[in-house]
């Protein structure tokens, strides 16, 4: 599956496509513009299969009656971000290396995820020089360096020690909002439930830093180039990069979407994200049924078709 930087990038690029298209209900653009960060959290989170469609169903009839801060725009932004996340996950997961593909222990499918994220950081964010759309997400050329050692403040504090504390605090802060804390009947129940809510630290940032600063050329070939993970010549990718750089593009969207079918995985993931949002739009405007949108999004288990 894809990882955090790619999830943020696909959300940013999907928002660029929506903003450049007339095919979506005004609710989509307005919500993404006004409540971008609600989507920012969702695109980096699990749960797309559970929340996206119910959120759209809850908001489609009250869109014109919404009031600022009543959650309508936040829900729509989050739903769309979750669908973008789902789209790139589908694309990447279906095409990542399997153990059967690997004949040399130099390679690892988990490391492939990280290399892909690092390439996204390079291509979409120019190694941190380009900022994400969220005004509250701070990246720079220090993001993927050891102890942020090229950051102007890295000489002021012991970054490794401070960051370790912040990492735990962020885990704590985010978990604090889960409702099971007050819904457990006993400490035994709470302890049993905790693992279902536990925010694990599962990725080794050092692997990112190594891949970013000193990539193994054999791994770049196996994980990225050979897989055609990202190709900046793809029309759809050029289109979103032009919007990113200049705020506009002359590349025809329909043509770029059509060509993306046979292009890099990132372009295909972005195409799938666009299609998922189109299906969401058709559901939001009641052109298709709930079953139809769930089918289109490939959300099949009955328990997830809420």
């Amino acid at each position: 599956m894809s990882e955090h930087i790619t999830h943020v990038a696909i959300y940013d690029d999907t928002v660029r496509l929506v903003s450049n298209s007339k095919e979506f209900h005004e609710a989509f653009n307005t919500s993404l513009q006004n409540q971008f960060d609600a989507g920012m959290m969702a695109t980096g989170a699990r749960g797309n299969h559970l929340h996206a469609i119910p959120f759209l169903e809850q908001t489609r009839d009250i869109w014109h009656q919404r009031k600022k801060g009543d959650g309508t725009e936040e829900k729509i932004a989050a739903a769309l971000a979750w669908l973008a996340h789902r789209a790139i996950d589908f694309q990447v997961k279906a095409n990542q290396l399997s153990y059967d593909d690997i004949k040399d222990p130099r390679f690892s499918k988990d490391e492939q995820d990280i290399y892909q994220d690092v390439v996204t950081f390079d291509k979409v964010y120019k190694n941190g020089k380009k900022k994400p759309l969220s005004p509250n997400m701070y990246i720079s050329e220090s993001t993927l360096t050891r102890n942020m050692n090229n950051h102007p403040a890295s000489g002021l504090v012991h970054v490794d020690a401070v960051e370790s504390l912040f990492c735990s605090l962020i885990q704590q802060n985010l978990n604090a909002y889960h409702t099971f804390h007050r819904n457990s009947d006993s400490i035994e129940d709470w302890l049993e439930e905790f693992p279902n809510h536990y925010q694990k630290i599962s990725e080794n940032l050092e692997t990112y830093i190594e891949a970013h600063n000193d990539p193994d050329p054999k791994k770049m070939e196996k994980y990225i180039t050979g897989e055609n993970f990202y190709n900046e010549k793809d029309e759809l990718i050029r289109l979103v990069r032009e919007i990113q750089d200049n705020g506009k593009t002359e590349i025809p969207l329909d043509d770029a979407l059509d060509k993306a079918k046979n292009q890099s995985h990132y372009a295909q993931g972005l195409l799938r994200s666009y299609r998922f949002l189109k299906a969401a739009n058709d559901f939001f405007t009641k052109k298709i049924s709930k079953d139809a949108v769930y089918d289109f999004l490939e959300i099949f288990p009955a328990a997830h078709r809420i």
Partner: peptide, 25 residues
Amino acid sequence: SLFREMVPRTFIRFHTVMPDDADGA
């Protein structure tokens, strides 16, 4: 700036954030 930049680094370490599925909104 340094402290703020620790947030995306932490989110990278998380891989994906755990939402509260009991109350997603």
